[in-house]
Simulated scan of single mutants.
Amino acid sequence: MTWMNRLRELGGAATTHQLRMAGATPEDLRRAVRGGALDRVRKGVYVSPLMDGAALEAIRAGARLSCVTACASYGLWSGTDRRTHVTLSPQSRRAPPGLTCHWRPVEAHPELWRVSLADCLRSVARCADEETAVAAFDTALASGHVSPSGLRRILEDVPKAARERGALARPGSDSGVESVVRQRLERGGRLVEQQTHVRGVGRVDMRIDGELYLEIDGYAFHSDADSFERDRLRDSALAQRGARRLRVTARQVMEDWNRVEAAIDRILEQA
């Protein structure tokens, strides 16, 4: 592995020590900066010229992405908060402008631009609203990033309220939007079964009160005709079984929940 491969492995940012350990010489680094293959953003810190956005902001500020911003970088649900959250050492002298700062000791982690996955989940438990935090945990479980017991261990030292959020997490949500729907329905007293298998149909996102099959199309869903046709066939198969069914979009869930909930209530009242 060359030292440039090591830089890519670390997400595009590395210290001089990390690159030297991977085989780079001082002349290699000087040559790479002169040739535009590296940028030196701080003393002893180099980044790929391809790094941009929130990650580069954090690196320049001597911070690391955390909370929901780090969640997004790990492919987890990050909710609707579009601020850039970062963790800074308590010894840092000032808050960088434009960043939402969390002043906490930074857990040892080789990536300079974001906190570790465990630290990310702990920061979400403390900082985000309950619905967002639980959805982040649900997507971490669904993606295999962490197990239920692993999540409990990660959160064992956070405040009680944050641990209680972790206890609400459930495997089974293939997306954060599915987790949001589950949480909202359960808060309303509904029984929700996720990833229910129906003979002749396959796996359905959720069954509500044992009566209504609910499918949730993601934001980028149906990008091709085949996906659209498969879903119509699934809907048809459910209809042939006489099953009550409803298909909604992620956008409807997040932007027009009252109407979605009212539709669910009406269908179940007819059961």
Rank of each mutant, 00 (worst) to 15 (best):
T2K: 05
T2N: 09
M4T: 09
R8K: 09
G11R: 02
G12R: 07
A14S: 06
T16M: 12
R20V: 07
A24E: 04
T25K: 07
R30N: 08
R31V: 12
A37S: 14
R40M: 10
V41N: 02
R42F: 03
K43L: 11
G44E: 09
V45Q: 14
Y46S: 11
V47Q: 08
S48I: 02
D52H: 13
G53E: 06
A54Q: 08
L56V: 07
A58H: 04
A61F: 03
G62W: 00
A63N: 12
S66G: 10
C67D: 10
A70S: 11
A72R: 15
A72S: 14
S73P: 06
S73R: 12
G75H: 11
G75S: 09
L76G: 02
W77I: 07
W77M: 07
G79A: 02
T80C: 06
R83S: 10
T84D: 00
T84N: 07
H85K: 04
L88K: 05
S89N: 12
S92G: 03
R93L: 04
R94Q: 09
G98I: 02
G98M: 07
C101F: 02
R104L: 14
P105H: 14
H109P: 13
L117E: 05
A118Q: 09
A118I: 10
R122K: 15
R122T: 09
V124M: 08
A125D: 10
A128C: 10
E130D: 15
E131R: 08
V134C: 01
V134M: 03
F137V: 12
T139P: 02
H145C: 12
S147G: 01
S147I: 06
P148S: 01
S149I: 11
L151F: 13
R153W: 10
L155S: 13
E156R: 13
E156P: 05
E156F: 01
P159S: 02
K160V: 15
A162K: 08
R163Q: 15
E164K: 15
R165I: 12
R165V: 10
G166P: 15
A167F: 08
R170I: 04
R170N: 03
P171D: 04
G172P: 06
S175Y: 00
S175V: 00
S175E: 03
V177L: 04
S179D: 08
V181D: 01
V181Q: 07
L185Y: 02
R187S: 05
R190F: 15
E193S: 07
Q195V: 00
H197K: 08
G200A: 02
G202P: 02
R203H: 09
V204C: 13
I208Y: 05
I208M: 07
G210N: 06
E211S: 14
L212P: 07
I216A: 06
D217F: 04
G218V: 05
Y219D: 12
F221S: 10
A225H: 08
A225Y: 03
D226I: 00
S227W: 05
E229P: 01
R230P: 06
D231G: 01
L233V: 11
L233I: 09
L233G: 08
S236L: 15
R241W: 01
R241K: 09
G242S: 06
A243P: 05
R245F: 13
L246P: 12
L246Y: 12
R247H: 03
R247I: 05
T249N: 00
M254I: 05
W257I: 08
R259L: 14
R259K: 11
R259S: 13
E261L: 01
A262N: 14
I267K: 15
E269G: 14
E269F: 01
Q270Y: 06
